[in-house]
Design a protein around this nucleic acid. Structure first.
Length: 423
RNA sequence: GGAGACGUGGCCGAGUGGUCGAAGGCACACCCCUGCUAAGGGUGCAUCCGGGCAAAACCUGGAUCCAGGGUUCGAAUCCCUGCGUCUCCGCCA
C-alpha cells in the first residue's frame, strides 16, 4: 500500500511512476474521493465534537442534580446529521481504501523501464552450461526412466500439476531443502522458523496477495487460505508489531510447501514439474531499517546465489523491468537457472525489496532514534524453489546411461549416495 | 466437541452508564537531590486519522479499552455475534 499522504501531495508524480509499470491511475476519481472525504470528514468531526461537548455538559448537570432536558434535546437534534455524516464518511473511506489497496508499489529509480519480461536486464551470468554430446533429456524423461518420478499417478490421486516422487528422488528433494536451510542458518545468519501453512485473510492482505489476486489462491471452506509462499506467514510475524530498533535486522528462513491455483496459466509449462499446484520452497525474509533495505536486497540475492554456486548450477541474475515486477515489489532480481533440455534459463528464485509497501499494510514498525514508530522495510527471496532446483539437478547432472550424479554438497544428506540410478 | 471464567496502554492492574484516553504500580527517558551501594523528589511516556500548514515544532478536533453490530443524549462499562485466552471434561498425532 502506498502512503496516502503521497497521493494527496503528489498524485501526478505517482501516476507517472505507475505508468512505467503499465498501470493507469484514475487520478480524477482519487481527487474527487479525496475532496469529498476532506469535506465530509471535517463536517462530521465538527458534529462529533459538538455532541461530545454537550454530552459532557449533560453529565455535569446531572451530577449536580440539575435539569438537563434542554441540552438533551439539543443533542438529539444533532443525531440525524451525525449519523448521516458518519455513514457517508465510512463509505468514502472504504472506497478510498479499496482504491489504495489495488494500487501497486512504485518501482525504485534503479529499476529498468520496460514493458514485459523481454525488457528485463541481465545483471550477471555465473557458471558455464555443460556441453552435451547428445541431446539432453528433460527432467520428466530422466525421472520416469529411473522409475522415480510418477506424474500420471499424481494426477490420479489429485489432478494435473501435482507430482509423485519415489525412493532416492524423493530423498534428494528432501536433501535439497535440508541443505538450503542449513546453509542459510549456518552461513548466512538466518533464524529458521516453522510456520502455519494456512493463513487468514488479514495476513494475505498484509503481504499483498489480497484483495487483488484471490483467484491465484486456494481458499478453504472456513475462509482460510493455503499459503502460496512462506513469505505470507513469515512476513506477517511482525504484523501489528513495533520492533525495538536494536533487534533489526531480523533475518528468517522457512521451508514450506506452496500452493498456487495457477489460474490463467493453463497451457503454460504443462509438462513436468516446472509449474505445479504444490511445490516446496525455502524462503528468506528480512525486516530492516529503511536506509538499509537496498543493501539487504543485494545481500539476500547473494544468499540465494550461494545455493546455486554450491550446487554448481549455471545461472544468471535478471533485474526485472518496471513492467514485469510484482504488485508489491519496488525492485526485484530473478535468478534463472540453466535448463539444458529447454536450452534456456528458467526462474528459480525471485528476490524483492518491498520497501514499506507491505509494512504499511501490516502496520509493522520499529522505533527510530527519536523513539517514534516508523515503518520497517521488508525483503524476501526464494533460496530456492526446491522443485525447480531438483529439475535443474536432474537435467544438468544427467549421464548418458540414464543415471544422475548427485552434487557433492548433497551427498552427506543422501547417506553418501553418489548417483540416482534405477533401483 | 461440552461447561464455566475472562479479554483495559510496553507489562501488571483499577474502573460496571456521565467532567475516562482511562487511577495506581512496574519498566523506560530526562531533570533535581544525594560523595557509597536496584535510596529520595519532579516531569514526561499509547496508536491512528483530520484541520491549522508546504514542512518540523506546536496548537486543535476525531477515532481506538479484542473485533463487528446494537441500546443510549452519552458505552471501557449494558445487549448480540465472532475471535482469542484460561480451567474442567471429552476426543486425538
Amino acid at each position: 500500500m502506498l502512503d496516502i499522504q503521497l497521493l494527496r501531495k503528489d498524485l501526478a508524480n505517482v501516476a507517472q511512476r505507475l505508468a512505467s509499470r503499465g498501470v493507469t491511475l484514475d487520478t480524477a476519481r482519487i481527487e474527487a474521493l479525496e475532496a469529498e472525504r476532506k469535506n465530509i470528514q471535517t463536517r462530521t468531526q465538527d458534529l462529533q465534537a459538538r455532541r461530545n461537548q454537550l454530552s459532557k455538559q449533560i453529565g455535569m448537570a446531572k451530577g449536580k442534580g440539575e435539569d438537563a432536558s434542554a441540552l438533551m434535546n439539543e443533542v438529539s437534534g444533532l443525531s440525524d446529521a451525525l449519523k448521516a455524516g458518519e455513514d457517508r464518511l465510512a463509505g468514502i473511506q472504504e472506497d478510498l481504501a479499496g482504491v489504495l489497496m489495488n494500487i501497486p508499489n512504485l518501482p525504485h529509480e534503479s529499476v529498468p523501464v520496460g514493458k514485459d519480461e523481454h525488457d528485463n536486464q541481465e545483471v550477471r551470468r555465473v557458471g558455464i552450461p555443460r556441453e552435451f554430446a547428445y541431446p539432453p533429456l528433460d527432467h520428466v524423461d530422466i525421472g520416469e526412466n529411473l522409475e522415480l518420478l510418477d506424474l500420471p499417478t499424481a494426477t490420479k490421486i489429485a489432478s494435473s500439476r501435482f507430482a509423485l516422487m519415489r525412493g532416492s528422488l524423493a530423498r534428494l528433494h528432501r536433501a535439497l531443502a535440508q541443505f538450503m536451510l542449513d546453509t542459510h542458518t549456518q552461513e548466512h545468519g538466518y533464524e529458521e522458523v516453522y510456520v502455519p501453512y494456512l493463513v487468514n485473510a488479514e495476513s494475505m492482505r498484509g503481504t499483498g496477495q489480497l484483495p487483488k489476486f484471490e483467484e491465484d489462491l486456494f481458499k478453504l471452506s472456513n475462509g482460510m487460505y493455503l499459503i502460496p509462499t512462506a513469505e505470507v506467514p513469515v512476513t506477517n510475524i511482525v504484523r501489528d508489531e513495533i520492533i525495538p530498533a536494536e533487534n533489526l535486522p531480523i533475518k528468517l528462513v522457512a521451508h514450506t510447501p506452496c500452493f498456487r491455483s495457477e489460474a490463467g496459466s493453463y497451457g503454460r509449462d504443462t509438462r513436468g514439474m516446472i509449474r505445479q499446484h504444490q511445490f516446496d520452497k525455502v524462503e528468506m525474509v528480512q525486516f530492516v531499517r529503511p536506509e538499509d533495505s537496498y543493501a539487504a536486497l543485494e545481500e539476500l540475492t547473494g544468499h540465494a546465489e550461494a545455493i546455486l554456486q554450491k550446487l554448481d548450477l549455471p545461472y544468471r541474475v535478471m533485474a526485472l523491468c518496471s513492467g514485469d515486477i510484482g504488485f508489491s515489489a519496488a525492485k526485484t532480481y530473478d535468478l534463472e537457472v540453466w535448463l539444458p533440455a529447454q536450452n534456456t534459463y528458467r526462474e528459480i528464485s525471485s528476490c524483492s525489496n518491498f520497501e514499506a509497501f507491505q509494512a504499511r499494510r501490516m502496520q509493522a514498525r520499529y522505533r527510530d532514534s527519536k523513539g517514534r514508530p516508523e515503518l520497517i522495510h521488508t525483503i524476501n527471496g526464494s533460496g530456492l524453489a526446491v522443485g525447480r532446483t531438483l529439475v535443474a539437478i536432474l537435467e544438468n547432472y544427467q549421464n548418458p546411461d540414464g543415471s544422475v550424479t548427485i552434487p557433492q554438497v548433497l551427498r552427506p544428506y543422501m547417506g553418501g549416495l553418489t548417483q540416482l540410478a534405477k533401483e
